[in-house]
């Protein structure tokens, strides 16, 4: 991931290295990508070795799924009925959370434009370690009806690791609830460790992401 790989055709001037004059006339050099961001790569966080503790914590993680409120495609129209009286996902411990820092589940709702993919990666990387991804709709599996589009991705798990796929166009809220229950089973069995997989295969994911995002003007890992 050297800097030559980045084709900065649309480079944002905000991220350029420059000389800034302070309020008292002092001049100093600013390199935003180095000064404002941490360039450390993600670490693998091993689960606890004592099975009783890990099972209990996994139960808590499964019963308290905080979903990031970020609708990426047309599938996000299925989220409001999921949380409102008809389907009421609060019964299953599913709650919406407005900031990636506090959420555990990322629902990729439908097709992903390349522009959105960049924001998805930033948000995904800001979430904290046990984190799960639910991919909604056919578009995340093979591109769906946008399979030959110039502007969307076809397979989501080239770019971020996916725990659960929910097929359909569009899957109804019942399907989403079934997906949540399946995800809970996976977490309780200790099989939902995709955040660690992302850290282990970080180079591979990053290469894939950089291949498709041409205007890469952010740090390699968004802390």
């Amino acid at each position: 991931m050297s800097e030559e790989n980045n084709i900065n055709k649309f480079e944002n001037p905000y991220y350029k290295k420059r000389i800034v004059e302070g309020p008292d006339g002092e001049k100093f050099e600013v390199d935003p990508l180095k000064d404002y961001f941490c360039d450390e790569h993600p670490k693998v966080h091993k689960p606890s070795k004592i099975p009783v503790i890990e099972n209990f914590l996994n139960w808590a993680r499964a019963e308290s799924l905080w979903v990031l409120g970020f609708g990426t495609g047309c599938g996000s129209i299925e989220i409001p009925p999921l949380m409102t009286p008809r389907f009421d996902a609060f019964r299953f411990g599913v709650q919406a959370r407005p900031t990636p820092r506090q959420s555990n589940v990322f629902i990729i709702s439908g097709y992903l434009a390349i522009k959105t993919l960049k924001r998805v990666i930033r948000s995904y990387e800001q979430m904290q370690n046990p984190k799960y991804v639910i991919a909604l709709g056919s578009c995340t599996i093979n591109g769906g009806m946008y399979f030959d589009s110039y502007n969307t991705i076809n397979r989501l798990d080239y770019y971020i690791p996916v725990d659960i796929y929910i097929a359909g166009c569009m899957p109804r809220p019942e399907a989403l609830l079934a997906g949540f229950n399946k995800l809970k089973e996976l977490i309780k069995e200790g099989k939902a460790e995709k955040a660690n997989e992302y850290a282990e295969k970080f180079e591979w994911y990053k290469a894939n992401q950089k291949k498709i995002i041409k205007d890469w003007n952010m740090p390699d890992y968004n802390w």
């Binding site: 670490k43 966080h45 209990f56 914590l57 808590a60 993680r61 019963e63 308290s64 409102t84 009286p85 009421d88 609060f90 019964r91 411990g93 709650q95 555990n104 904290q128 370690n129 046990p130």
Partner: peptide
């Protein structure tokens, strides 16, 4: 007009938050 969360949800949320690894 929803059923709402289970009554023990705040305790689970608390344990979950303390159990996040990073």
């Amino acid at each position: 007009k929803r059923y709402g969360i289970p009554w023990y949800q705040p305790w689970v949320d608390l344990v979950k938050n303390y159990a996040i690894r990073s």
